[in-house]
């Protein structure tokens, strides 16, 4: 199948290096300490953060750092075929683990010993790149909750189809069987913290695809920073400073 037309347009009309429309909103769950909605095109996820709070299960308490937990779930209605998926299948267990470890790397856990931070992410609409969207939403939610972090973590995916590197794959492109690279970076430190890749790709091509994904992550980081700045301004305005 042709994923990039001779004119250089993708199935949804984007250019190969173009991202989908991104939209973020802070404060989607009223009871949570921090929450956010993040949209990348038709992919929409919601994240809520609770904590730092008392450790629920005392046996898990750590005396030198905070305990970070994460739960990723996909709503039944998020995909085209409405399948009842068993909770805790292998894919979502893995993604939960990936998100937890990614967020753990940027949270200053040593500042909050004997406490626990819970991150819940729920996919409302899935159209490729749910992993990236979840990480971006979790970053926003953590920032909203005021949890000290080393840096923001932002994530974006990239792929390689029809011998063209493509940024931010949607579902059709994702399931085309080409390479799929999900990348998470700490934009200020310029370090890669998350890197997942599937399918076969020579090393030098992978380097290009990774570079493209890094550019995507930086663009997301700029947007997230704008949103956070806007949010802070709002808060200041309400305080009447």
């Amino acid at each position: 199948m042709e994923y990039v037309s001779p004119e250089g347009l993708r199935l949804d009309g984007r250019r190969p290096m173009e991202m989908r429309q991104i939209r973020a909103e802070i404060g989607a769950v009223s009871k949570a300490d921090g929450s956010a909605v993040f949209e990348m095109g038709n992919t929409k996820v919601i994240a809520a953060v609770y904590g730092p709070r008392q450790v629920q299960n005392k046996s898990q308490q750590m005396s030198d750092q905070a305990l970070v937990r994460c739960e990723y779930s996909m709503a039944n209605f998020s995909t085209g075929d409405r399948m009842r998926k068993p909770k805790g299948d292998r894919r979502s267990t893995e993604i939960s683990l990936v998100i937890r470890q990614t967020m753990e790397a940027c949270i200053l856990t040593h500042l909050m010993p004997h406490s626990q931070i819970d991150i819940f992410v729920q996919v409302l609409q899935a159209d490729g790149g749910t992993r990236s969207a979840c990480i971006n939403a979790a970053t926003l939610a953590l920032a909203d909750a005021g949890i000290p972090m080393r840096d923001l973590v932002t994530s974006c995916s990239a792929g390689y189809l029809n011998s063209t590197p493509l940024l931010d794959l949607n579902y059709v492109e994702d399931s085309a069987g080409g390479a799929d690279v999900t990348l998470g970076i700490l934009p200020k430190l310029d370090k890669v913290t998350l890197l997942q890749m599937d399918s076969k790709l020579p090393i030098d091509i992978l380097e290009n695809v990774m570079q493209l994904a890094i550019e995507g992550c930086k663009a997301v980081a700029n947007y997230i920073r704008e949103i956070l700045l806007e949010n802070t301004k709002q808060l200041e305005y309400r305080r009447g400073v």
Partner: peptide, 23 residues
């Protein structure tokens, strides 16, 4: 020399240069 999969699930951040060297 084809990369079939990579898994770096969070943890310490490393620069892209180091990753390419590792590959």
């Amino acid at each position: 020399g084809d990369v079939c999969s990579i898994q770096k699930a969070g943890g310490e951040g490393v620069s892209q240069r180091v990753i390419m060297h590792c590959l």
